[in-house]
Amino acid sequence: MSVFLQLFWEFFKTGLFAIGGGMATLPFLQDIGETTGWYTYGELMNMLAVSESTPGPIGINMATYVGFTVGSAQGGPLLGVLGGVIATLGEVAPSIIVILIIAAMLKKFRDSRYVQMAFYGLRPASTGLIAAACVTVVLEVLTNVALLDPAGGSIVNGFQLPEGQGLFVWKGLALAAVLLVLTHGPKRVKDLHPIVFIALSAVVGVVFHFAGA
């Protein structure tokens, strides 16, 4: 199957099953990276950071970015643009279809008992999926633990403790602690736009050589 067809299909699935906004697409994007090998965890984290720091809905920004990355790997920036457009259209297509159907029977949908019952189970599940994504991201960024799953996503195949380096990335943990305090601090600080914290972290990363080279 052509990569672009697959790209559309993967993002169509993401748009159809990710419920609750942009961040809910993250577990699906992780899954796509794992099963296709199109991008690594680290790359996905970078894409998420850029998507949070630019205008527009986060979910759309990530779809465009992933699509661009996959497309340009096929042969240059022009195919990248095509990939970005295809992934974004794939992600919004289910929304358009579902909303157009619901709009036609708005009142029925709102009052449906079955819809409300399903969402009683769906909401905590969506939160659980994002929490799981958070766990793997924390393992990846703040520890030196290597997952043995060839795709990198789950600990089903066990994991490997680091050799010759500590278990934790101490510089990263220190920054994480500071950010955690700031984002739960006084209202004036915690209500700052995420871009402020992202920019601060970038500066800290450069000053303290976070990439470790």
Partner: peptide, 30 residues
């Protein structure tokens, strides 16, 4: 090198942003 350092710092921030999103959703869904 400095771009890689910057993104390594940003990745830490992304961890916290995801964690905070989970906390917020947790309160309304669980």
């Amino acid at each position: 090198a400095w771009v890689q350092d910057a993104f390594a710092g940003i990745q830490v921030c992304v961890c916290i942003l995801i964690f905070n999103a989970v906390l917020k959703l947790f309160k309304s869904s669980v």
